[in-house]
Write a protein that binds this DNA or RNA. Structure first.
Length: 421
RNA sequence: CGGGGCGUAGCAUAAUGGUAGUGUACGCGGUUUGGGACCGCGUGGCCCGGGUUCGAUUCCCGGCGCCCCGACCA
């Protein structure tokens, strides 16, 4: 992408109404646009990041036999009444509206009920199971107080997956496999070492659910961590009873501020019982299905990554999710010979499949470097008069600031050894 | 939902009971060109409604919006 064609531009200052670092940097760099409190649009650069995160999640869900689908944003009232979750007293984040023809609809804040209901039409026997389906949906939640930029909005993208099994062993084994898949996701995003699976409150159906908490100063949660034993406990379930059952002492725990990036629930057979979702077992008897649900906050993760991967100059994206991997910064482009040569380099990089953003704007170097730092692409290659004359490019990594000087062939060899796509 | 704060140009800010200045961004011209250069000219603004007043961006009331702390977060 040529930067002269890129929508949008960077800005020097963040809006006064944004305090959260993630929103400030994402807005300044032109990744997102604030529509209203807790509601953000994703501009071309931001969308590329969202899509990259989604693709990693998609690959890991597919690896545990998840099948992607997409449910509807509008939901039926009767469905939620059946599980007693339509009332605003019970679920306080509903957005609701009315059909012109009469009748109420809800805007999806979760899809457990609709998915369960839909399954009734498609599974009837133990032979149809197990099955696991997932989607990326924009969830709508009427939060009383949106905050922390894109980390807690009223509209956000979430991956939610639902598993259905005929027997407990299959169900529990699947539940366990999602933990591995989730950790794979977080590792690929570069937050694996800072993400812990915690015991959390699980509602009426299980003693505990599990949350995936990433260490992050901007987070809303506090977890108690014992790194040696690999135990992490949410504040809300920290009790003597919990500690005893886990075999840890209070003084062995370290309090850490975190953001919840994932959450998995084991519903057992209760949810299916509530929904009336049953199958025939091998004896021809009707039995409720074993269900689980598994969420990852895609846009929240993006916010967490900005919070963690940034410095005073701007964002520092890891290769796995950067909107482009390489920032080709052209200098001295007022010199037609330099420009032609830099254009050629850009074309060569593209031909090699390198994900490259080419700053072909006719601006002073300082401004280009500042923008480049702010946007935070992992590698910067400088194409200047000097580079052309010396036959070597300055290649800088955004994260560590390492500087290398490579010839064009060395540059390509470097890419071929470790493709920067 | 309880408490606190704030709404002036695309963005950031200043002053003011007598219709508003600066920076940045944007447009034009010129000088510049390896870390947000500079000169000149130009475009552009007081959240909405009501009240007080000769006159309200300013004071008062209401609304709407935004931010923070807490509560909430299946």
């Amino acid at each position: 992408m040529r930067q002269t064609h890129l929508f949008t531009k960077t800005r020097r200052e963040a809006p006064a109404d944004e305090v959260a670092k993630n929103a400030q940097l994402l807005i300044r760099a032109g990744y997102i646009h604030k529509e209203m409190a807790g509601v953000y649009a994703y501009l071309p650069l931001g969308l590329r990041v969202v899509e990259k995160i989604k693709q990693i999640v998609r690959e890991e869900m597919n690896a545990i036999f998840g099948q992607e689908l997409i449910m509807t944003a509008l939901q039926r009232k009767e469905l939620w009444e059946r599980t007693d979750r339509w009332s605003d007293e019970i679920v306080d984040v509903w957005f609701k509206s009315e059909l012109k023809a009469g009748g109420e609809v809800g805007f999806g804040w979760s899809h457990e009920e609709p998915i369960g209901e839909m399954m009734k039409a498609h599974i009837a026997s133990y032979k149809d199971l197990p099955v696991s389906v997932y989607q990326f949906q924009t969830k709508l939640r009427n939060e009383l107080r949106a905050k922390s930029g894109i980390m807690r909005g009223r509209e956000f993208v979430m991956k939610d997956m639902y598993s259905f099994a005929a027997d407990e062993a299959t169900h529990l084994s699947y539940y366990e496999s999602t933990k591995t898949a989730y950790m794979n996701v977080f590792t690929r995003l570069g937050v694996g070492e800072d993400t812990f699976i915690t015991f959390a409150a699980g509602g009426a159906f299980t003693k505990f659910s599990h949350e995936f908490q990433t260490v992050c100063e901007a987070g809303e949660d506090i977890i108690y961590l014992n790194r040696e034993k690999g135990i992490a406990i949410n504040e809300e379930v920290l009790s003597d009873e919990t500690l005893t059952s886990l075999g840890v002492k209070r003084e062995e725990l370290e309090a850490v501020k975190t953001a919840e990036v994932g959450n998995i629930f084991n519903f057992g057979q209760q949810k299916a019982t509530d929904l009336g979702l049953a199958i025939k077992n091998e004896q021809g008897e009707d039995v409720p299905v074993w269900m689980g649900s598994y969420g990852i906050g895609v846009t929240r993760l993006m916010g967490v990554m900005v919070e963690k991967f940034s410095d005073e100059k701007g964002m520092v994206w890891p290769k796995s999710v950067a909107p482009y991997v390489l920032h080709l910064v052209g200098l001295n482009l007022e010199d037609a010979a330099v420009r032609d040569w830099a254009d050629g380099l850009y074309q060569n990089l593209r031909a090699r499949g390198v994900s490259v953003l080419y700053d072909d704007r006719d601006l002073r170097p300082g401004e280009k470097f500042a923008d480049s730092d702010l946007m935070g692409l992992p590698y910067r290659v400088i194409a200047s008069r000097k580079a052309r004359e010396e036959g070597k490019f300055e290649v800088v990594t955004r994260a560590g600031g390492q500087v290398r000087h490579l010839t064009e062939d060395e540059l390509y060899a470097d890419f071929d050894a470790s493709p920067l796509t």
